[in-house]
């Protein structure tokens, strides 16, 4: 009842608010039915090609026909279980980290181990797994792989850089500052271009670094710089009294950093980390410009099939929905983590 009254007041409290509300409602009344009839009531769900789709409505049958391309790129169909398994390992260890407080260390170790485990699973070539070239990885899977590795590597790297920047040693602090400011000052796309297009020209003949690896390295360097600044902000937020008190108790510098500063900084940094994660996840779509087939890359490509020409709206709407769902999941788990950390620190 109270919410009702409050929202009524917020929406119709003054003549100006009433006017804005009325205009917005009129806009919604105008847009929603059209959207509804395009996306749902007038849409075609089952068809063999574009000719089977009704005009005026969305042709979701196209998304159905191209679903594997959207999710896995050109990853061989009979090997898709490896993608699922890798995802399960990552999700399980992430969930463990957030939900199972007591064995957190073990879960964190598993999360770190999931990078090599996932790499072996996806790339194969050993343990009897059929090798799958990284050029065949694609779709949503590629965005997830890129974002996951970049975040996981950049968090420790960012912490190290933040401590380095705050270091009393001029040389270390200066070096860290130069690194951070350099990577924050150059555009990601330009660096991706350099890495993927220019690098092969400078490498000796026959030496080639995997294309995906190049993009991944660029993303890691980039994200580390941003992470470093988030952690620096968090570290500076902790009152100096903490460090002094810890020193007075006889803790040595590394102990102060690891036991006193870092746990508190982590808590402060969580919103910033989630922000970077969401941002990075969407930035991974830039790799499509350098010839990797991420979700936006396959979306662009899927509409070139003569059987389904001209359905770019459907392709991009679907890609946007996938991005939305994953970003939402990320911010929700970020909020969950924040609540848990907060209750541990101040919930008495």
């Amino acid at each position: 009842m109270k919410t009702m009254r409050l929202s009524f007041k917020a929406l119709f409290g003054s003549w100006f608010n009433s006017l804005v509300t009325a205009v917005m409602l009129a806009l919604l009344a105008w847009i929603v039915p059209q959207l509804w009839s395009w996306a749902l009531s007038g849409a075609t769900w089952i068809a063999q090609s574009k000719t089977g789709c009704a005009a005026g409505g969305a042709c979701w049958a196209f998304v159905g026909a191209k679903l594997k391309l959207f999710l896995y790129g050109n990853y061989p169909a009979e090997q898709e279980w490896r993608v699922h398994l890798a995802l399960a390992v990552v999700v399980a260890s992430l969930a463990g980290c957030v939900l199972d407080e007591r064995r957190k260390g073990r879960w964190l170790l598993m999360l770190m181990a999931s990078v090599p485990v996932g790499a072996v699973l996806l790339a194969g070539g050993i343990l009897g797994l059929v090798p799958v070239r990284t050029s065949e990885w694609g779709g949503l899977m590629l965005n997830l792989v890129l974002a996951f590795v970049a975040v996981l590597v950049s968090i420790p790297a960012g912490i190290a850089l933040a401590f380095a920047r705050l270091s009393k040693s001029r040389t270390i602090s200066w070096a860290a500052t130069v690194f951070i400011e350099f990577w924050r000052a150059v555009p990601l796309l330009a660096v991706l271009f350099m890495g993927v297009v220019m690098l092969p020209l400078f490498l000796p003949k026959g030496v080639s670094v995997d294309n995906l690896m190049r993009a991944m390295i660029v993303l890691v360097l980039f994200t580390s710089a941003y992470m470093a600044e988030v952690f620096r902000g968090a570290l500076q937020d902790i009152p100096t009294g903490q460090t002094e008190a810890a020193a007075a108790l006889g803790l040595r510098k590394p102990q102060v950093a690891l036991l006193i500063l870092l746990p508190q900084a982590m808590r402060i940094a969580v919103p910033g980390i989630v922000n970077i994660m969401v941002d990075l996840f969407k930035d991974t779509s830039l790799v499509s410009i350098v010839g990797l087939f991420d979700l936006t890359g396959v979306a662009a490509q899927s509409v070139k099939d003569p059987a389904w020409l001209g359905l770019s709206t459907e392709a991009y709407v679907f890609a946007a929905m996938l991005f939305f769902v994953w970003c939402l999941l990320m911010s929700l788990s970020g909020q969950l983590m924040e609540r848990r950390l907060n209750s541990r620190f101040s919930g008495r």
């Binding site: 191209k66 391309l69 087939f293 662009a300 899927s302 070139k304 099939d305 003569p306 059987a307 020409l309």
Partner: peptide
């Protein structure tokens, strides 16, 4: 090409 009708594209079976 990464995708252009007639010259290079992926069909339903990728």
């Amino acid at each position: 090409d990464t995708g252009i009708p007639g010259f290079a594209y992926q069909d339903g079976a990728r």
